[in-house]
């Protein structure tokens, strides 16, 4: 677990964060200078204004003598952040019986289709049968992209023509999932910005169609978030949640140098748990999210 992530981060750690080295090493005073360096670590992870709150907590703990040295700040933060990221329903929701329907959404290029390929592999390895729905009928060759993954991973796929109604594809897919009695149905959707009203309405419609034949579907609504995204991630989480009641995040592209700290602001403001992380472009580059190593990587400098 997290091997890939570590590998990726190790490559860049010395390179990019040398200036911060030793922030948490001994002998430093918890003074303005230290706070400023801490600010830099926190902000650089993309957690945005949440950094202010966290620093306030550190200062409070320092005043109450819960923290007495800078090394302890590191431990304090690790615990604090990991706790924040662990609450709530972090496991994947499953249907009580019949197919579990997973709807996958997000902005353009966030990694939805690739994440579906990864999830397919993940479920297959658990001995579950998977069906894919090519719900991105908008982008050129998006259907072909998912079809290639279906072929490579040897799972069936339901698709329509490019330009056809994605809700119809979703409906067909649910029928097929019931008929084939698959364990998991993964529904891909076209990328869309959360500010595009009509496209968000379309997404809502897809969500509603999924529950036509299976009352409690979709069981899981995953928002795929690019780890390089900044504060806009919070807006994405908010608006996608309002429209389709997101149940979990997939944080993709953590194999780069971005820390993905936006998920901490999201937890703070919208409270959606991270369920998976993406650490590469291949189907096995998916890992179940674990707060502790994530926070380590975020703070380690």
């Amino acid at each position: 677990m997290f091997k890939k992530l570590w590998k990726g981060l190790a490559k860049t750690r010395e390179k990019l964060t040398s200036g911060l080295k030793g922030l948490f090493s001994g002998g430093r005073q918890l003074d303005d200078d230290f706070i400023e360096d801490l600010e830099e670590v926190l902000y650089s992870s993309d957690m945005g204004a949440t950094a202010v709150k966290i620093i306030e907590r550190v200062q409070k703990a320092y005043k109450k003598r819960e923290i007495e040295s800078t090394e302890q700040v590191f431990e304090f933060l690790k615990k604090d952040l990991a706790e924040r990221l662990s609450g709530g329903d972090t496991s994947l929701r499953r249907a009580a019986s019949g197919p579990t329907v997973v709807l996958v959404a997000g902005v353009n290029g966030s990694g939805k289709t690739t994440s579906i390929a990864k999830l397919t592999k993940h479920f297959k390895e658990q001995g579950l049968s998977v069906l894919l729905a090519a719900g991105d009928t908008f982008r050129a060759a998006a259907v072909e992209q998912l079809t290639i993954w279906a072929d490579r991973l040897d799972v069936p796929i339901v698709k329509g023509e490019t330009g056809s109604d994605p809700a119809a594809v979703a409906y067909d897919a649910v029928e097929a999932a019931l008929a084939r009695q698959v364990d998991i149905l993964l529904v891909d959707t076209a990328g869309r910005l959360h500010t595009q009203k009509n496209l968000m309405t379309e997404l809502e419609k897809i969500r509603n169609v999924l529950s036509k034949k299976i009352a409690d579907a979709p069981h899981e609504v995953l928002l795929v978030l690019d780890a390089t995204t900044g504060q806009n991630a919070v807006q994405q989480a908010k608006l996608f949640s309002e429209t389709i009641q997101v149940t979990g995040l997939v944080l993709s592209k953590l194999d780069g140098t971005a820390k993905g700290g936006a998920v901490i602001s999201i937890r703070d403001q919208v409270d959606i748990p991270v369920k998976f992380i993406g650490v590469g472009e291949q189907p096995d580059d998916l890992e179940v999210f674990e707060p502790a190593p994530f926070v380590d990587a975020l703070l380690e400098s």
Partner: peptide, 12 residues
């Protein structure tokens, strides 16, 4: 570049 990129934009 994606306009929504955060802090990491400088690195890449």
């Amino acid at each position: 570049c994606d306009a929504m990129t955060g802090q990491d934009a400088v690195n890449s």
